[in-house]
Design a protein around this nucleic acid. Sequence first.
RNA 1: GCCUGGGUGGGGUAGCUGGUUAUCCUAUGGGACUGUGGAUCCUACGACUCGGGUUCGAAUCCCGACCCGGGCCCCA
Length: 414
Amino acid sequence: MELQRPRGTRDFLPDEMAKRRYVENKLREAATRWGYGEIKTPTFEHIELFTLKSGEGILGEIYNFRDKGDREIALRPELTAPVVRMYVEELQRSPKPLKFFYFDNCFRYERPQKGRFREFFQFGVEIIGSARPESDAEVIALAVEMLNSAGVKGDLHVGHLGIVRALMKDLLPEHQSKIMRLVDKKDDKGLEEFLDELQAPDEMRGKLFRLIGLRGENAVHEARELVGEIDAMSQFEALLSLLDVYGLEYQVDLGIARGLDYYTGMVFEIYCEGLGAQNQVCGGGSYRLAALFGGEDTPSTGYAIGFDRIMEICEAKPAEIKRIVVVSFDDTRKEAIVIANKLRAHVSTYIDVMGRKFKDQISYANTIGASHVVIVGKNELDAGKVALKDMKTGEQVLVTVEEVAGRMSGEVLL
RNA sequence: GCCUGGGUGGGGUAGCUGGUUAUCCUAUGGGACUGUGGAUCCUACGACUCGGGUUCGAAUCCCGACCCGGGCCCCA
């Protein structure tokens, strides 16, 4: 085989596409029901958009090229930056909040493994213009709702970066950033070394380690004891009580961090079993990116679902498409085409294009799992009718084309 | 970028302590059965991932590349 697809890319065959479309539509419906509008941004952007957001360090994982006009272009590695770019470019004066969803492919130059590809698909949601716990809670609830509608159950972990940051408020911003990165990586050893280097006070050090280790039931109380009455803390508590209102099960996890500075408040992640090393199916949080892209500072909250990962584990099964085959004889082929065209308004209809004989046409119908065969022969046509044969039972009845249409419609069409 | 396992027709496989024409199943095209499917038979198609090396001789042994799986790193 000389030609093969590039590494980390995939072909999707009809059966798999049917499943993917089915799940995609479930997610799409959920987002729509919650009042979010679909958007679409370009497949490629100026590379600065992504280096601005994530730093020069990401260049190694970006598909980029110089176009004929000598512009440095990148295939998008994610969709939050393009969405915020779009907002800053044309929507800053729109009524808030703005609620968007998207589903598209992204590209990263990474080593492929289970649940990780070089071209992959993200389904995401962003709400722009609110920094309140209400929007945070809504976004989280929608994420859970989407996954549920796709038949995926996961563990929801919720944290708040403002709490950890409050503890470090006396440190230089770049030192805070470094610490957040170490926390994000769960690199306790590196964190300790860095705190040594900073000669951080023991009190803060102790609190920091306790804070990022907090999980579950009493985490909130303990956190409050550690950091006291601060805005982030009361915001977080407000958020949690709203999550209760939504009836969500969650685990407080103050060890969730983000290595990037524009994540400011709530963060959440959803994990699933059965995915190997790539067990996170959804991640999100509140952030401030608009100012970085030259707009007014605007709070946003969003998340992205790793679509390929939920496809790995979801058990949703699309309803089988009913299909019928119109079969004919050499002297009725043209009539059969006319009849097939009528039936196509009602049901997924096949007709022979291989010049096959009558018997082989039926055999083909059997092969593709057709539920019925419509036989168009001289005898039937003389009576103004066709024969409708049930491939399961073998029963056959003489009916008009309209009756066939009537019996076959009401089924799911493509 | 690192570690590890693996690549034989479209799919699944045998061969792999080197030795004729690479095995079997399945799928696919054509045909037999000529107005009724799943069966059977005939026939066609079709592979040793690629490149070096060792050898009289390599699918088989060695090296490298590529690709796939699993795990690190990373994960905006």
